[in-house]
Simulated assay, not measured.
Amino acid sequence: MASLDQLKRVVYISSFSKTISPNLRVGYMAGHPELIEDLAQLKMIAGLTSAELSERIVYGALIDGRWRKHAKTLRERLTAAHEKIAARFLELGFELFTEPKAGMFLWVRHPQIDFLQQEIARAQKLGAAA
């Protein structure tokens, strides 16, 4: 959405915790400069800051190019794991809803297991008991 809006009204918020390290709780925002300035002021007033050491580690990784190489390696490993687990699901008789080219998730179902019907029946029992 941020790309379609060209950051006029939509604010893009993310972090580096999934790509650099889970222990680095450093995030970032991209948006219209005036809005980002206002949000930065609110952040400073509220005193919500990341640990300086974490910010320096992220800054160093971004500036010296380590992050780009690390992100590429991470994408390649994730793609390989994705392909491996998708193949294993298929071997076990599962169906893939789609075959995503990236990401951390696979959506699968087994044609002989209808989870939705089981959950509906369980919800109906809980509702009748209440």
Rank of each mutant, 00 (worst) to 15 (best):
L35I: 15
P100V: 06
Q124T: 02
D64C: 09
K43F: 03
L42W: 03
K84S: 01
L62Y: 09
E55K: 11
K8R: 15
S21G: 04
E37Q: 07
G47F: 03
L35D: 00
H70T: 10
A130D: 01
G127N: 11
L92S: 04
L42Q: 10
I120Y: 11
K69E: 15
Q112H: 12
E91N: 03
G127C: 05
A102V: 14
A102W: 11
R88Y: 00
L24Q: 01
I120E: 14
G103R: 06
K72M: 07
E99T: 14
T98D: 07
K18Y: 13
T73N: 07
A87R: 01
A2C: 13
I63H: 02
L90A: 04
L7V: 08
K125D: 11
A130N: 05
Y12D: 14
A130V: 10
A102D: 13
H32R: 15
K84C: 01
E119P: 00
H110R: 14
R75Y: 14
L48E: 15
V11H: 00
V10A: 09
Q118S: 09
T73A: 10
E37M: 05
A128G: 02
W107D: 15
L39N: 03
L62C: 11
V108L: 13
S21N: 08
A129K: 13
E52N: 12
R122I: 04
A102R: 14
T73H: 00
Y59S: 08
R88D: 10
R68Q: 15
H110W: 12
R77K: 08
E83P: 01
F89P: 03
K69C: 13
L7H: 13
K72F: 01
L90M: 03
H32E: 06
D38Q: 08
Q117V: 07
A130C: 04
F97Q: 03
W67R: 14
E34W: 05
Y28D: 08
I45R: 12
L48M: 12
S50A: 11
E52P: 05
R9N: 15
T79I: 00
V10I: 08
L42C: 09
H32W: 13
M104T: 14
G65Y: 11
A129M: 07
S15E: 05
I63N: 09
H70M: 07
I85A: 02
V10E: 08
A2L: 12
L35A: 03
N23K: 09
F105Q: 10
A40W: 09
E76G: 00
H82Q: 07
P111R: 07
L53F: 10
K8G: 10
E76M: 05
G47I: 01
L62E: 07
K84N: 01
W107P: 10
A129T: 04
S21H: 09
Q118C: 05
E119S: 10
L116S: 12
E76S: 03
W67V: 11
L116V: 09
A40M: 06
L92E: 05
D114H: 15
I113F: 15
L96A: 00
T19A: 10
L106G: 11
K69Y: 04
I57R: 04
I120K: 12
N23H: 10
A102I: 12
V108D: 11
M1C: 11
